[in-house]
């Protein structure tokens, strides 16, 4: 039924974002909290191109993704100079700055009023307004994402990155340009986040800066941590759980006077419990 299809679409989109974040955070060890910003830039890029120019879906999405990649390349320079908690903090700072730009660069983004009436895709003349077709589109792209990241992690390139995760200094001694590898990981991750964002924009048909503040980045991180750092399948499970569980809670029949807060408390408890009992997440190979 439609409700399940919609949840499936959101889950698929979240999965693309989570798998790409897993690549950056879980696999490579770069603790970035700015992933939702790239998701947002992809969303805005696609949305603005779809509504303000005559571009159709596929070129708009690709351009949106390209723009995200460029911003990520630019942002990665300062962000990747740091490690661990400092990196986390700087990525938070970056995320909040991007949010501020989305909110205040009114001539570009229409500010808090957001971008309305984003059209659903039309690919090769077929209109994809129907939810079921859109789900197929998302699933196809998700499978593509999984294949790409799987291949990368199993390749020699992936082995180098695993080495960087374990011990950067040693890799440097071996002569690897660690910095270049980290930059490429960061940008690739951001590109797929942008892809997810573009899909989101066209589905929900209205975006505003509100959708992309700090909390979505935290949710994405929770998805990856929950699912398991370094595990592609785990990230997908994490994405599905985090997308679907709050909606399932609607059926739990909690009196609405505290259902909303209880929902959030459950998140807090999940985070805490994960850190205590299973910091590597459900299927993870690496601990935080």
């Amino acid at each position: 039924m439609d409700f399940i299809v919609q949840l499936a679409i959101y889950s698929a989109i979240a999965s693309i974002a989570a798998v790409s974040l897993n690549y950056v955070v879980g696999f490579t060890g770069i603790m970035s909290i700015s992933h939702a910003s790239f998701y947002g830039i992809g969303a805005y890029g696609t949305a603005l191109l779809l509504t303000k120019t005559g571009l159709s879906f596929v070129p708009a999405l690709l351009l949106g993704v390209l723009i995200t990649g460029l911003v990520a390349a630019f942002a990665s320079v300062p962000i990747l100079r740091l490690r661990e908690d400092s990196l986390m903090l700087v990525s938070v700072g970056f995320a909040l700055i991007i949010h501020s730009l989305m909110l205040n660069w009114q001539s570009l983004t229409n500010g808090p009023r957001g971008v309305k009436s984003i059209p659903r895709p039309e690919i090769f003349g077929i209109s994809l307004t129907d939810k079921n077709f859109y789900l197929v589109l998302c699933l196809v792209l998700l499978v593509l994402t999984i294949i790409i990241f799987y291949k990368i992690t199993k390749s020699p390139y992936g082995t180098v990155i695993k080495g960087i995760r374990e011990n950067e200094e040693v890799m440097k001694n071996y002569g690897y340009n660690v910095s270049k590898y980290k930059h490429s990981v960061f940008v690739l991750g951001a590109i797929f986040a942008g892809l997810a964002g573009g899909l989101f924009a066209s589905y929900i048909q209205y975006i505003s800066p509100e959708s992309f503040i700090l909390l979505p980045s935290v949710f994405m991180l929770i998805m990856v941590i929950l699912g398991g750092m370094g595990s592609i399948g785990g990230s997908i499970i994490g994405a599905i759980l985090i997308t679907v569980i709050p909606e399932l809670m609607r059926f739990a029949g909690l009196p609405s006077s505290f259902a909303a807060e209880s929902n959030q408390i459950v998140y807090g408890i999940i985070l805490f419990a994960l850190m205590y009992w299973r910091p590597q997440g459900l299927f993870g190979k690496y601990k935080i």
């Binding site: 935290v218 991180l221 941590i225 807090g268 408890i269 985070l271 994960l274 850190m275 205590y276």
Partner: peptide
């Protein structure tokens, strides 16, 4: 738990 773990856990506590 690592430092990053503690931050995440502390954030969970904040939400609660």
């Amino acid at each position: 738990a690592s430092n990053v773990s503690m931050i995440v856990a502390s954030f969970g506590l904040l939400i609660i």
